[in-house]
Amino acid sequence: MTRETPSDEGTELGRFLRARRARLTPGEAGLAAGSGIRRTPGLRREELATLAGISVDYYVRLERGRETRPSASVVDALARALRLEEDEHDHLRTLAARAGRGTPEQPTTPSRTVRPGVKLLVEGLRPYPAHVLSRTTDLLAHNPGGLRLLAGMDSWPVKERNIARYAFLHPVAPDLFDDWGNQVRGCVARLRTLAGTDPDAPDLTRLAGELLVKSRDFARLWERYDVRGRSHGRKTFHHPEVGDLTLGYQSMELEGTPGQRLVTYYAEPGTPEYDALVLLDILGSQTSAAGAAKAEHHL
């Protein structure tokens, strides 16, 4: 059995409905448990159709991509039946609207150029680690601590530095992140959200295709079809150079450059975590200086 990639036949609307139907048990949906062995891991099509108040035939056509213009009331009824949260409900609306447009839109190629003012801002946040990410989590810019916090990332070529690739494929990542499972779920959720609006985008298909082949964990989470990504909170790291530290973080969309996000981590001055960030900044600066000197020597 081959694994799905973002460009497989069918609609994202159908994929999303299948994935979420498979995750919801009859008990969670408020249905009485029936007798006998169920062959379906989640809800059957006819059960979801009944809960949403639509015909089974209509629902099957929706899931198979033969019906592409569900009304707003049908979308809302499916969201209620599937127990979707607000972000997931919004994603379902987006998928339905996209399916209704008929002719697929041309995939977009967002700019990877980070504006000079944004680079100055990233540098000015020191000693707080900060980096700029593309919509597929490529590392486009960073200050010394922003790279050093991701232990071992600096050993990869610049063009391969990607947060999702790092989280799933770098041997240090599972030990670095205290809650690695939550970290990777967030990475996949962001990529899945992008797949709903731009499924054939080259940057997405390349990354997702690579990770589907190289990581069983990624393939499993991709099939779950989570679409939520946290933009702020706290993360705990077990860093090999500065020890354990719990940091606040904030992710911000950069207006004027679609798809780019600024992510920064922070700690209260005077705390052990802040001192650790200062040390990370120093270590990162030393590595950057050594790399620049080496490059100049080879000119």
Results as ranks from 00 to 15, higher is better:
M1A: 06
M1R: 09
P6K: 03
E9W: 03
E12C: 00
E12A: 00
G14Y: 05
G14N: 11
A19F: 05
R20H: 03
R21D: 09
R23N: 06
T25S: 04
T25K: 00
P26Y: 02
A29K: 07
A32R: 07
A32E: 10
S35E: 13
G36F: 09
I37Y: 08
R39V: 00
T40W: 02
P41F: 10
G42S: 05
R45S: 06
R45P: 05
A49K: 05
L51S: 00
G53W: 08
D57H: 15
D57S: 15
D57L: 14
L62Y: 04
R64C: 14
R64S: 15
R64N: 15
R64Y: 12
G65A: 06
P70D: 03
D76R: 14
L78P: 09
L78E: 07
A79V: 10
R80D: 08
E85C: 04
E85N: 10
D90M: 00
L92K: 11
R93V: 13
R93L: 11
T94I: 13
T94E: 10
A99K: 13
G100Q: 07
G100S: 07
R101K: 12
T103E: 10
Q106M: 12
V114I: 03
P116I: 12
V118S: 05
P127I: 08
Y128P: 03
Y128L: 05
H131W: 01
V132Q: 03
V132A: 03
R135E: 12
T137E: 09
L140P: 11
A141M: 02
P157Q: 08
P157S: 01
V158I: 15
V158F: 13
K159S: 09
R161L: 09
A164Y: 09
Y166D: 03
A167M: 06
A167D: 04
A167T: 04
L169I: 06
H170P: 04
P171W: 12
P171C: 13
P171I: 13
V172D: 15
P174F: 11
D175S: 13
D178C: 11
R185M: 13
G186F: 00
R192P: 14
T193N: 15
L194D: 00
T197Y: 04
D200L: 11
D203L: 11
D203A: 13
L204Y: 03
R206G: 11
A208L: 07
G209P: 04
E210V: 00
E210W: 01
L211V: 06
K214R: 07
D217P: 02
R220V: 08
R220N: 10
E223N: 05
Y225R: 15
R228H: 15
G229R: 02
R230M: 01
G233S: 14
R234N: 05
K235A: 05
K235W: 05
T236H: 12
V242M: 06
V242Y: 06
G243I: 02
G243Y: 02
G243W: 05
L245E: 02
T246V: 09
G248P: 11
L254C: 01
T257G: 06
T257M: 09
G259Y: 01
G259Q: 01
Q260R: 01
R261N: 14
R261T: 15
L262G: 10
V263D: 04
G270S: 10
G270Y: 08
P272V: 04
Y274V: 00
Y274Q: 07
Y274R: 07
A276V: 02
V278F: 02
V278N: 08
V278I: 11
L279C: 03
L283F: 02
S285N: 10
E296V: 03
E296I: 02
H297G: 03
H298E: 14
